[in-house]
Design a protein around this nucleic acid. Structure first.
Lengths: 248, 248
DNA sequence: CAGTTTCATGCATATTTCTGCATAAAACGT
DNA sequence: ACGTTTTATGCAGAAATATGCATGAAACTG
């Protein structure tokens, strides 16, 4: 990894999380803490970040800036953290859109080499920031509110891909009703994704567990792994666990 | 392998991956690292890439990810204003990426009903803000630097579309050399677009008129309309006018 | 204030770059 | 066509750069 590249990545992380730890970064990109410290010093020198003991801070504190607030961001961050452990080098990964997926995109370890395939434009942007990931965009008509491509072309293309892993941002999940959503076209895309991947991972904040929407994506049995921000052994998740779904 | 060829390849790699390593390139095309370094230096000299210790980076790194201001925005706004007059209800419009195209996207009249087809993710986002426009995204591998999709799939898809109008963001135009660009894949996409549309519109700031890059997109005769920020009767544009191209 | 973590400094090492030069290939002028 | 000039490329050795490690100092924590 090149110096500038590393610094750009650090800057990205700082802008995203408002703080970084030297120890964390060091581990994340496999260089010594000394190097990280030198990078932080350089970035601080350029005024891009604020260097503090133990890491760095966004200087947006200093200048006052915008913090885009995502609903239940902490929960989603936890979920993303669990999900990232499933991805290994060389994998082909299908993802939908949604804010949980975006969180996932942001915390992908920089040395991970994988191919991400998505219908979500925001997700594609996020993946594009990553130094070692190949991004494949599935094309079709753009659904304006969700910024994902939907339609027959997209679905056919998804079916052509034998992905190792599929991450579904989940709107509602229920033991009886299965995975459900409320946008017809989104459902088509998710169906296709769930159908073609070797392992299907559902990412869902606990609040949406045991809720249902009008349109069905798939049965809970079709899911291989369910990730929520709760403990895996949490009572709320027992019904899913006993259906043979792995809980993280 | 010729020097120009090599440099075009390097540039393509940079546009696709945002970085290249001298060592890697050297091995990949069987020339010494010295030669690669000289190529990188030349490309950096022309401002096409950012040269760093160990290789090269896309110059999007240098500008800082946030708040990059568009070069020559006033000129581009004028061009976009002229271009928008060509679009009518019901049309199918193909567009490339580039900042000029983004300007166009922003000033589309809200009551316009048309279908825009693009390989550019930023352009797609911009179009998506429009209330009455249908947006079709062409999918394929994402070039990280320019955020456009490139590759065989994309080109095949473009060829399937009979668009009424094609807007090309132009990198360089010259009466002799024609429309030229510096990234092989981008050139393929532009070629396909220019080839399939009923009318081809080139949008080009006057600064780039009578300049040339390494790779050819098409002849000036293949363009139907040329838009710059200059007056149509401007002297600089005479040669194009006399080739039968309509100037706006 | 004692213990732990983080930091700065100097140094060692590996990698990358620069410089000058030699050679080969291409372009040019007459 | 021939010799000359320009250009492109590779190579060797010196210089610069990037990084990690060891040590003691400084900063945090409770």
């Amino acid at each position: 990894m090149l110096k500038k590249e590393r610094q750009a990545y650090i800057l990205h992380q700082v802008n995203l999380h408002n703080k970084v730890l030297s120890s964390h970064l060091s581990e994340q990109m496999g260089v010594s803490e000394d190097t990280i410290r030198r990078d932080l010093a350089a970035l601080a020198q350029e005024g891009k970040i604020l260097k503090v003991h133990g890491g760095g801070l966004s200087n947006s504190f200093h200048q006052g800036a915008v913090a885009q607030d995502v609903y239940a961001i902490e929960e989603k961050r936890i979920i993303a953290q669990k999900a990232v452990g499933l991805i290994h080098d060389g994998m082909f990964v299908l993802t939908t859109g949604g804010t949980t997926i975006l969180q996932l995109a942001r915390i992908l370890p920089p040395e991970l080499r994988a191919t991400f395939i998505t219908v979500s434009l925001p997700a594609a942007f996020e993946y594009a920031n990553h130094p070692n990931i190949e991004v494949i965009v599935i094309g079709d008509k753009l659904a304006k509110n969700s910024k994902i491509t939907v339609g027959g072309e997209a679905i056919a293309k998804i079916r052509d891909i034998r992905a190792d892993l599929c991450f579904l941002g989940v709107n509602a999940i229920d033991v009886q009703a299965g995975l459900t959503d409320n946008d017809w076209e989104v459902v088509q895309v998710k169906k296709a994704m769930a159908g073609t991947a070797r392992k299907v991972v559902a990412m869902c904040i606990s609040e949406k567990v045991n809720t249902a929407e009008h349109l069905k994506v798939c049965n809970v049995e079709d899911i291989d792994i369910l990730i929520t921000e709760l403990q895996p052994k949490s009572k709320k998740l027992q019904p899913y666990s006993s259906k043979g779904i792995r809980i993280l």
